[in-house]
Simulated assay, not measured.
Amino acid sequence: MMQYEKIIKQINKVTSKENIKINELMENHTSFKVGGPADVLVTPENAMEVQSIIKICKENKVDYYLIGKGSNLLVRDGGIRGVVIKLCKLNKIEVEGNKITAQSGASLYDVTMVALDKGLKGVEFANGIPGSIGGAAAMNAGAYNGEMCMVLESTLVIDNNGELLTLTKDELELSYRSSAILKHGYTVISVTLALEPGDRAVIKARMDDLWKKRNDKQPLEYPSAGSTFKRPEGHYASVLIQDCNLKGTSVGDAQVSEKHSGFIINKKNASAKDILDLISLVQQQVEEKYGVQLSTEVKIWGEDLLLAKEA
C-alpha cells in the first residue's frame, strides 16, 4: 500500500477518514457477493468530493472505478488495483411537480416508491431492478417493456475535464444497454425523470404485478447480477441457453439458474473464477450450436487471483 500513501492523504483532505477503506473486499459491495480487495475504496458525500477525488486520481495517474449498488458487476478474485469510488452516499431524491431528481446513488426501488407516494406513473417497470439510478441511466436499464429512455429528461454528469455538465435526453444517445455516459466515461451525479400524474392504486397494482412476475420467474433468492448476457439481435439469450440444455449447469458453486437460464447465480460460495468459467462455457456452447455470440451485460473488472499474487 506504500504507493497509495500519497493519494490517500490527498483524498483525506477532501472527505473524512471514515469514508476511506484500504484493501476492502469487493464481495461486500456487489450483488454477486464475490470479488477480491480494492486497493482503496472511498464513499464521497457530495458532487464536489467526487470531482476532487477523480481529479486526484488523474493527477496521480491512478486508475479509478465508479460503482453504485454493484448490482451489475463481477469483480475478479484478485481484486481491483486503484481506487473504487462508491456513490452510495449520493442518495437524495427530490420532487418538483411531475419531475423527480435523484442523486446517482439512490436505489431504483426508492425512486419508484417516491413516485408511487406522489402519484406519478411511468417508472413502475424499474421497481424491482436491484441497482442505483445512476447506473440505470448509464446503461439505459429496462424490464417488462420499459426502459429508462422512456422517462429520462436529463442527467447531471462530471465530464472528462472534471466539469459538471447537464446532458439532455437527446444528448444522452440512449440505446439498448448503452448511452453517451458509457461511451465517454462520464460520471453520473444526478438524474431527472419526467413522469405523468397517475392513480396511486393503479401504480401500486402495476408494481405488485411486476414484482410477482419477477419473484415467480427469477432466482431472487440467490446472489447474482441479474441478466448475465445482453439480448442478441433476433434472439433471447435465455432461450438459446435453455435450448443448449445448460439450465442447472454448474462450475463450482456458480450455476445457470434452474429457474431462469438467463441468470448465472452464486449458489453458496462461488468464486469469481467459477462464474467466469461458467460464462465462457455458456458462450462456447451457444456459439457452437447456434452460431450466436453472447456478450455479457454484467461488467467484469479486476485481476485474476494468480496474477495478483505474482505481482
Rank of each mutant, 00 (worst) to 15 (best):
S132H: 04
N145C: 09
I54P: 00
L73P: 11
Y65V: 04
E153W: 04
V95W: 01
G134S: 10
K99T: 07
G68Q: 14
N91P: 13
M148L: 14
G122V: 12
L152H: 03
S107D: 00
N140D: 14
N145R: 13
K89V: 03
E96Q: 14
L152D: 00
L120H: 05
Y64T: 03
M150N: 13
G70E: 08
V123Y: 10
A102R: 10
K92H: 14
C57K: 09
R76N: 11
T112L: 08
L66C: 05
G97H: 04
E147N: 08
E153R: 15
A137W: 07
A115H: 07
K55C: 08
K61N: 15
M150P: 00
V95E: 03
K69T: 05
L73Q: 06
E124V: 04
Y64D: 01
S154L: 04
L87Q: 09
V83C: 01
N60I: 02
A141F: 13
G131E: 01
Y64S: 05
G97S: 14
T101S: 05
V111T: 08
E94M: 13
K92S: 09
V84R: 04
I100M: 13
N140K: 12
G78W: 11
K89A: 07
E124W: 01
V111P: 03
G131T: 04
K89M: 04
D63W: 01
K99G: 00
